[in-house]
Design a protein around this nucleic acid. Structure first.
Length: 720
DNA sequence: AACACCGCGTTTTTT
DNA sequence: ACGCGGTGTT
């Protein structure tokens, strides 16, 4: 059996995983150890060697991107397209179950998915109606509470406040929110999982059906599973399903949103006879980079234990750059990127990583100034843009008029004279009669009780929706969207916001129509209404922000967003105590190890060259604050690091623990990193200081003319 | 309905 | 410092 060509290109550990005998398997796969490869080959093995029918395989990932990649790679390996095989995200698969069995799940056929934005609006609405003060009961906290409860598998009725008044309020909000979702046929992200779990629990026949069907369950990034996802896998597996989970406890960085690394250990207890395999050979990074990562992560105590190794070359040492301030840091990084590109390397092979999104701006500025193409990940997503959501709200109304979230958005966008007062009446009626806003509005129009102007405006809206419904029936998906945009006069509406803004909005609307035209129903969803499927897809797959794909550009993203990716050249920036590890993580117990894992993830992204950067001074929350090098850097053996400070030789402030100001600089009341302006040389940064009193001189790095020594008592420098 | 002002938060983010 | 969201004013 092991002569299968499937195993040829694999190492021993990988082979063992791919050709694992029947039973449960836990694969601890270190960074860059060929994790995805193993999963894909395993599926191919099951189908090709073990003769498992494709429909008996369920493969789960976390992100759409990972699911798409897996689908793609499986298709290229398994002769025929992965037909009947379920490959998707937890949410996508749960959604599929609910669509198939909407009746048993207690949902309307046209139920829609509530994204977090809509969810927050709805919660705000609920809280306001319950007379809660937003300041005392922040809606965001309620949202977090509700999602957290659902992630833990708990319904409002299961919860007990134990006399905690605040919790009592949250539970009440949860209950009312859920009631409204149910009335409107809306399902939020966490609900997808919880509801589909309940569906299976409540319907033994259905559960048995799926247990019989999915004999093989594979889970990627298992360390990121939360309580409900874990329970979901367990439930589906039952006693018959064979589960292979692949994960790396050292790369668990989503504890703050409910992921439980403990699930990795639990898996071994909850499932019988788990075969534990380790993938420890790294094929990605040079030995130096890998050793740095190993040394760093060794500082964590809660580990299952794993030691990555490579038989590759040591490669270059890591480079540590101490910048004066964040501007200097950005300049340095951009300069290195330019050199990289000048050497004929691809820009896309370089990544600038940072802890928080706020850091991206300065890099963006410098990249623009240097004319280097770049792409920032993690901006606003396509389907979350206002114009898209406005348009989709109408389509949602047409699909399911009881969708209150859609009603609230569409009813006065563009403004058509339906003000707060009128809406309050509609909401009140809906509340008393326990009906949707749509039906309450209808009743109000029919039954009078509204001021005539309001009644007109409202009935115009109701009529608009009715007419649109009639007009769109039977048309193609893309045409429906086009007609909504025209009929509702959305373009004119956005025009009032200013020409430039309107221009992008219109372009996005065109993109939306294009997306609809190119929308292909998944085979499994063929029986669904294309519009319903399109709307669900829009929520589940919110889409990347800037789809400028194909262009060769530097990649900018947070460390979190970098997980799963690799780059020949990596810059980890802002390695300063308080920023990374983040202040908030230092305060909360258990978070420090997660921060360290995040650093580990960052380091292991690099294939060949890794730069560690920090600024001794940084503009942060207003003031200019002195920074100290991140303790994570000191956890990397010094012999792996080459430190460069090209323009300054002062005491190493971070080592003595003091602020990033040289003693010399201190005496003359001019700080390194100080921004200055000179009448003829323009703007610059103080880079070094010598002497004292009248003889004190400073090396200034001017933006326009480069570095110059200036005697402070002569040079007419303006401190900025 | 548009604009101004005030207060607050300010890590990470998928689905 | 800054931007956002929510509230109050015209």
């Amino acid at each position: 059996m092991d002569v299968s060509p499937l195993l040829d290109a694999l190492n021993d550990a990988q082979r063992e995983a791919v050709a694992a005998p029947p039973g449960h398997t836990l694969v601890l796969a270190g960074a860059g150890s060929g994790k995805t490869r193993v999963l894909v080959h395993r599926i191919a093995w099951l189908v090709g060697v073990d003769r498992v029918p494709e429909h008996a395989i369920l493969a789960v990932t976390f992100t759409n991107k990972a699911a798409a990649e897996m689908r793609h790679r499986v298709q290229s390996m398994v002769s025929d397209l992965g037909r009947g095989m379920w490959v998707g995200t937890f949410h996508g698969l749960a959604h599929r179950l609910l669509r198939r069995h909407f009746r048993e799940a207690g949902l309307p056929e046209t139920f829609q998915i509530l994204d977090s934005d809509d969810q927050l609006r709805l919660i705000k609405r609920v809280q306001r109606d319950q007379g809660l003060d937003d300041a005392r009961f922040p809606p965001r906290q309620s949202q977090w509470f509700i999602n957290h409860c659902k992630d833990e598998g708990q319904r409002a009725e299961h919860l007990d406040a134990y006399g905690d008044g605040l919790k009592q309020v949250k539970i009440a909000v949860y209950a009312e929110y859920e009631a409204r979702c149910q009335r409107s046929g809306l399902v939020d992200f966490a609900e997808l999982l919880l509801r589909s779990q309940e569906l299976l629990l409540r319907d033994p026949h259905l559960l048995e059906h799926y247990r019989q069907r999915f004999r093989h369950i594979l889970v990627d990034e298992f360390q990121d599973t939360n309580e409900i996802q874990y329970a979901w896998i367990r439930l589906l597996a039952g006693d018959t399903g064979q589960v292979m989970v692949v994960g790396d406890d050292d790369q668990s960085i989503y504890g703050w949103r409910g992921a439980k690394v403990a699930n990795v250990g639990r898996f071994q207890e909850d499932f019988p006879h788990v075969r534990l395999l380790r993938l420890e050979q790294n094929y990605r990074s040079t030995a130096n980079i890998l050793n740095a990562a190993n040394a760093l992560i060794a500082h964590n105590s809660e580990r299952l234990g794993k030691h990555l190794w490579t038989d590759g070359a040591p490669g270059e040492p890591l480079t540590l750059f101490a910048a004066y301030n964040e501007m200097d840091e950005a300049r340095f990084v951009v300069e290195r990127v330019r050199e990289w590109i000048a050497q004929g390397q691809a820009a896309t092979d370089a990544a600038i990583l940072y802890r928080s999104n706020a850091q991206s701006r300065i890099f963006e500025q410098q990249l623009i100034a240097a004319g280097v193409p770049y792409r920032i990940y993690g901006g606003q997503r396509f389907f979350e843009r206002v114009e898209i959501k406005d348009t989709l709200a109408y389509l949602r109304m047409l699909t399911n008029p009881d969708d209150d979230a859609a009603f609230e958005r569409a009813v006065n966008t563009p403004s058509r004279g339906i003000g707060a007062k009128t809406l309050a009446q509609v909401r009140a009626r809906a509340a008393t009669d326990q009906m949707s806003l749509w039906r309450a509005a209808g009743d109000l129009c029919d039954g009078g009780g509204l001021a005539s102007r309001a009644a007109h405006a409202l009935s115009d809206f109701l009529q608009l929706i009715a007419e649109l419904g009639a007009d769109l029936a039977g048309r193609e998906l893309a045409e429906k969207i086009e007609r909504v945009i025209t009929r509702v006069e959305l373009v004119a509406h956005y025009q009032s916001e200013g020409a430039e803004r309107a221009q992008t909005r219109v372009e996005n609307l065109e993109e939306l129509v294009r997306a609809a035209r190119g929308f292909v129903l998944q085979a499994e969803a063929a029986e669904d209404d294309p519009l319903v499927a399109f709307l669900a897809n829009a929520a589940l797959e919110a889409g990347e922000s800037q789809a400028a794909e194909g262009e060769d550009c530097v990649q900018l993203m947070t460390l979190h967003a970098a997980k799963g990716l690799e780059f020949p050249l990596v810059f980890m920036c802002g390695l300063e105590d308080g920023l990374f590890p983040h202040m908030r993580a230092v305060e909360e117990a258990g978070r420090m190890e997660e921060e360290r894992r995040l650093a580990y993830v960052g380091i292991t992204r690099a294939k060949r060259l890794l730069y560690l950067c920090y600024a001794e001074q940084r503009r942060w929350h207003g003031g200019n604050t002195a920074r100290r090098l991140s303790k994570f850097v000191s956890e990397i053996p010094a012999e792996l690091i080459r430190e460069i400070r090209p323009r300054i030789q002062v005491s190493r402030a971070w080592q003595s623990g003091g602020p990033g100001v040289s003693p010399v600089a201190n005496q003359c009341a001019i700080k390194l990193g100080q921004n200055v302006r000179h009448d003829s040389f323009g703007h610059g940064v103080v880079v070094n200081v010598e002497g004292a009193g009248e003889h004190a001189r400073a090396l200034i790095n001017f933006e326009q003319v480069g570095s110059k020594w200036m005697v402070l008592s002569y040079g007419n420098l303006e401190m900025l």
